[in-house]
Amino acid sequence: MLTSIITFYIFRAVDEDRKIEYKAAVKIQSWFRGCRVRAYLRYLNKMVIFIQKWWRGYRSRRYFSKLVEIQKRWRGYYVRKYIHNYYALKKYLEAISVNNEIVSELQDYKEMKENEEKRKYLEKKEKEEKYQARKMHYLLSTEQIAGIYNSPFRKSPDPMELLLRKSKPLSHRQQQTKSPFDYELYDWPTCKRPPTFSTAQPLPPTGRQKPQGPFRDTTEVLRQRYKPLEPTLRVAASINSPPEKAREEMKREEWRNRIHDNEFLPFSSYHKNQKYDPSIHRSGKYGQETYGIKHFREVQPKKWVANKDFQTVLPPIVLFEKFGKTYSRAGQIV
């Protein structure tokens, strides 16, 4: 009994499973078969396209071959004519080399410049020579004595001699003693030159021999010669030259004012707050009289005889008329 029940249950379970398994098998089979057929179709399609491609390419090439020939010829012609034109390039390069020739004529410009520099140099040299000739003018030969440039043993005098004849001697120049602080800020823009300032009096000459004869000792003489000036108080104070004194006073005034007035004020707005205060004479409430400023004498037109001023008539001075005629002929150009 028990076994029949068990087998019943087993059979029942198997029966239930069979349906499910059957369905699953169908599903798997249908999926697999579908795949296979699709792959085959894909393959067929590919083959068709391959054949079509070749066939169509072949047909078109046969059809277009003439066209391509024309196109090829035209393109080649166009490029050779307008883009990579050999003859044009050659012409261009020739033109460049011609142009370069022209440019290298700039050499002339360079030479011109060099000549100019040379000329400048020569001019400078000539100027120097002339200056030297003026400086050494004392070497000029006189009527009696030949100079060193005019040797009697030579046929012709030295060119320097001719130059000396032409030039004038240098005039005596005053030694310009420059103040040491004169230019300290003028030598711009380098700022390199230091302001030099002389330190003291010139040193007395050394090594001077005592001359022959009844003279005093050299050191004594030199001491006297280079003794600093020691004016007396009367001379130093310069009592007897009032203008000098006044000038001194003015200078001092200026100096003093400079110290007090031109104060160093770091800010520009400092001056703005200052008020203008007028002098007492101008600020009074009484007006000023015009007499002495605008006019200086009283005018009474009523008393005038005529409207015009009188003219003064004087006889000519005889002496002045005769000036330069009577006494001498000095000052006249002959």
Partner: peptide, 12 residues
């Protein structure tokens, strides 16, 4: 620059 002759000048 080449047309102006610059190359020749530079070469010089």
């Amino acid at each position: 620059i080449v047309n102006a002759g610059g190359v020749a000048a530079v070469i010089d």
